[in-house]
């Protein structure tokens, strides 16, 4: 899922300073799962903002909405009755959703209520960790299902660097060496021969190095 963290309430209040009537828009997608932008978070953030503004004798009117997804045009239509009727939209979807709302409703300022993080997993309740950087050329079949791009701090492709010690990355004592994980997994799978395979130079043009990316599937387009 796409993960994120709430922006500090003071930062949001500063953004909202010029506005009297806003929409707080959540998303039932990834941000609901990682507890940062779903229906419950819409309610809590809206209450908090109303209280904070009324405490300053500067009331804020809020329309609370939660869309099925903010990254699909069909679902954005649910915002149409409100988006252009209010001073601003505060979206607590991921950065993709926030931008899509801004694209769709050009007359209304759209503000971010969260800081979008990474593509990750829930390791335990309240703890998420990065697993994929969307490089566009997956090699997980060679690396025991552990990604050298996202799990190695340097995104190395042919084993650990000198900063790996006792399975820990030099970046932080809390970070496992991605390549140690890969080698341990390959051993367990009896696939250590994969470690000896030369992987050709990675073409990073499929990653962010090629600029903003687009996927066009002719078989899917109408």
């Amino acid at each position: 899922m796409i993960t994120g963290t709430p922006k500090p309430i003071d930062e949001i209040l500063a953004m909202l300073e010029p506005y009297k009537r806003i929409v707080v828009a959540g998303c039932f997608g990834c941000v609901t799962v990682c507890r940062v932008g779903g229906e419950k978070e819409v309610q809590v953030l809206s209450s908090s903002l109303r209280l904070a503004r009324e405490a300053k004798d500067n009331k804020l009117e809020i329309k609370e909405v939660c869309l099925e997804r903010q990254c699909d045009p069909e679902y954005l239509e649910a915002l149409r009755p409100y988006a252009e009727d209010y001073d601003a939209v505060l979206s607590i979807a991921c950065g993709a959703g926030i931008q899509f709302v801004a694209e769709k409703f050009q007359k209304t300022p759209v503000l971010p209520g969260i800081n979008t993080g990474f593509l990750g997993v829930t390791e335990r309740q309240g703890e998420w960790a990065e697993r994929c950087q969307g490089c566009g050329d997956c090699v997980l079949h060679l690396t025991g299902g552990i990604c050298p791009v996202s799990r190695c701090a340097k995104s190395l492709f042919h084993g650990p660097c000198g900063g790996s010690a006792k399975g820990i990355c030099e970046v932080s004592p809390d970070v496992a060496c991605g390549w140690q994980l890969i080698i341990d997994r390959l051993k367990a799978l009896n696939q250590l021969e994969n470690y000896g395979k030369l992987i050709p130079y990675k073409g990073w043009s499929t990653s962010r190095d090629g600029g903003p990316r687009r996927i066009i599937r002719e078989d899917m387009t109408l």
Binding site: K40, Q43, V44, S47, L51
Partner: peptide, 12 residues
């Protein structure tokens, strides 16, 4: 109990 329920009490 949800956080929102408690906050609504303060709004009330």
């Amino acid at each position: 109990i949800e956080e929102a329920i408690i906050l609504q009490a303060f709004e009330g």
